[in-house]
């Protein structure tokens, strides 16, 4: 067993004999056009059944809603006005000025980073309105809450450093659902949600929902990776907003891209998941965001719950001792 938190190589922790370089995504939301090709490609390749009742959710052009058992890529749409753009720019600038994370000696890092105080920050093209579009996906965390708490071993770490469910092992206990700090993995329901739409009847003969009652999430197209193929979403993305490759390269690309955007005065750009010192040890899927993470439905400071597990066990041990002592006192102590 590897460590429970902090920077590490998850594949080595899982004791794979033939290690592959860790694979990952870099999702650059600044070039996403919201076409949802990734959502469609993912559904097709993975034979994921329909999610929900084809409702209009009233949330811009997003009628998918969120990641779930049958939605492994989800494109978020956010409409923002002037105020919010200014705020995003400010919060991004504050982040830059924090100079984090520090790599190497603090002095060197401070001089290496661009000093954005002097940069001309005249907004290049967004005037008083903007769309944010972001294709969300499982983060394939370095310390994956879902994997840690799975009692059956259905969830496992692949040789590519990704996190995958074995459909034939999972018994649907649902522990992983609560264990994921990003709200990604979900137990697939049997799809018996009734709707009165005619569409429903058209599709009535469709095969039964596969893997019902079992936890489901993005596999980073494990079946394609073993065949040396690119995951379906990255392959389908027309703008290369979704990039796929070795995790190290992805992080490097992300760092270059965010530096480039900063140099253009887009201080709102920031990375999400590229820091191996964060609460989940860094994510396999790195994102470039243009606003605070919670705007996209991402947690602002996720922490893998298992990081505190040794402490929880110790507290539980103390409680057990207390209970046994109470029982002993109840029998031995006076006035019975």
């Amino acid at each position: 067993m590897g460590q429970l938190s902090g920077p590490t190589d998850p594949t080595a922790d899982a004791h794979w004999e033939h290690q592959q370089p860790r694979k990952g995504f870099f999702t650059d939301t600044s070039v996403c056009i919201g076409c949802k090709a990734c959502e469609v490609a993912c559904k097709e390749w993975n034979h994921n059944p329909r999610d929900g009742n084809l409702e209009l959710l009233g949330s811009s052009y997003d009628n998918t809603g969120s990641l779930g058992a049958s939605t492994w890529r989800h494109v978020a749409f956010i409409e923002q006005g002037q105020d919010r753009i200014t705020e995003a720019r400010e919060s991004g600038r504050a982040l830059v000025n924090l100079g984090m994370p520090r790599i190497g000696p603090p002095g060197a890092a401070a001089t290496a980073g661009p000093d954005l105080a002097q940069v001309d920050t005249t907004p290049p093209d967004t005037a008083d309105f903007r769309w944010l579009m972001s294709s969300d996906v499982c983060k394939h965390c370095t310390h994956a809450g879902c994997l840690d708490v799975c009692p059956t071993g259905a969830l496992f770490r692949t040789e590519f450093g990704t996190v995958v469910v074995q459909d034939d092992v999972c018994n649907g206990c649902g522990t992983c659902v609560a264990g994921c700090p990003f709200g990604v993995i979900e137990r697939r329901s049997d799809g018996m949600v009734a709707v009165a739409a005619q569409r429903e009847e058209q599709h009535a003969e469709h095969a039964a929902v596969p893997n019902a009652g079992v936890a489901q999430k993005c596999t980073l197209c494990y079946d394609r990776l073993v065949a040396d193929e690119t995951p379906a979403c990255a392959k389908a993305c027309p703008t290369t907003s979704i990039k796929f490759g070795n995790h190290d390269d992805m992080v490097e690309t992300a760092r270059e891209r965010v530096a480039g955007l900063h140099a253009q005065g887009l201080t709102e750009a920031r990375l999400y998941g590229a820091n191996e010192l964060d609460g989940v040890g860094g994510t396999g899927s790195v994102f470039l965001l243009l606003d605070e993470p919670e705007v996209y439905g991402l947690p602002p400071d996720p922490r893998v719950p298992t990081a505190d597990l040794p402490r929880m066990y110790r507290r539980a041990g103390m409680a057990v001792a207390g209970m046994v002592a109470a029982a002993a006192v109840a029998f031995l102590g006076g006035r019975a």
């Binding site: 959710l57 949330s59 997003d62 809603g65 969120s66 978020a76 956010i78 649907g172 649902g174 522990t175 659902v177 609560a178 994921c180 700090p181 990003f182 709200g183 990604v184 993995i185 979900e186 137990r187 605070e292 919670e294 705007v295 996209y296 439905g297 991402l298 947690p299």
Partner: peptide, 16 residues
């Protein structure tokens, strides 16, 4: 008093 994505949950409740 906070920003969220259309008020949707960030984490998923256990299916218990």
């Amino acid at each position: 008093e906070f920003t969220s994505y259309y008020g949707r949950p960030v984490v998923k409740p256990a299916p218990w």
